[in-house]
Simulated assay, not measured.
Amino acid sequence: MKSIVEERAVELGEYIVNQRATVRATAKRFGVSKSTVHKDVSERLKKISPTLYKQVNDVLQLNKAERHIRGGQATKIKYLAHHQK
């Protein structure tokens, strides 16, 4: 029988893969901390489901590679909105 923590790790991992979600978005959706999400999908999931862990890791690596672009877009939108006032 799986524990609640193991079930949560699998559920978080499946959400990240299916939605291509970030750790922050996943934490917000499930009402847990970013640290909890990260620990569940990077440590616990590796032992529970190596296949799902690999898929989650691929999504997280992609998010990490793209985050500077998202940050730049957010800053651009912020300043455009500020200058339009």
Rank of each mutant, 00 (worst) to 15 (best):
L80W: 09
V17Y: 02
M1E: 01
A27T: 13
P50G: 10
L12Q: 11
R44P: 08
Y79T: 10
S49F: 04
V56T: 01
I48L: 08
Q84T: 11
A27N: 06
G71R: 14
I69K: 12
Y79R: 15
R29P: 01
K28E: 04
V5R: 02
L80V: 12
K54T: 04
S33F: 07
E7Y: 13
A25I: 03
G71V: 05
L60E: 07
Q55L: 06
G72E: 09
A25R: 14
P50C: 09
H82D: 12
S3Q: 02
L52W: 06
K64T: 03
K39N: 11
G72D: 11
V23H: 03
R8W: 11
N57F: 07
T22A: 05
N57C: 02
Y53D: 00
Q55V: 01
A9H: 01
V59R: 02
K47V: 10
V10R: 11
Y53N: 09
K47Q: 03
N18M: 14
V56C: 01
R44L: 07
N57D: 10
Q73A: 14
V59H: 01
A25H: 06
V10N: 03
V5W: 10
R8Q: 03
S49Q: 05
Y79K: 15
I16P: 05
R67Q: 14
D40T: 02
R24G: 00
R67P: 00
H82F: 15
K85Q: 14
K47H: 10
L12S: 04
R24W: 00
K47E: 00
S35R: 03
R8D: 10
S42R: 11
S33Y: 03
I4A: 00
K54N: 02
L45D: 04
L12W: 15
E43W: 02
P50Y: 15
Q73L: 07
I48S: 04
V56S: 05
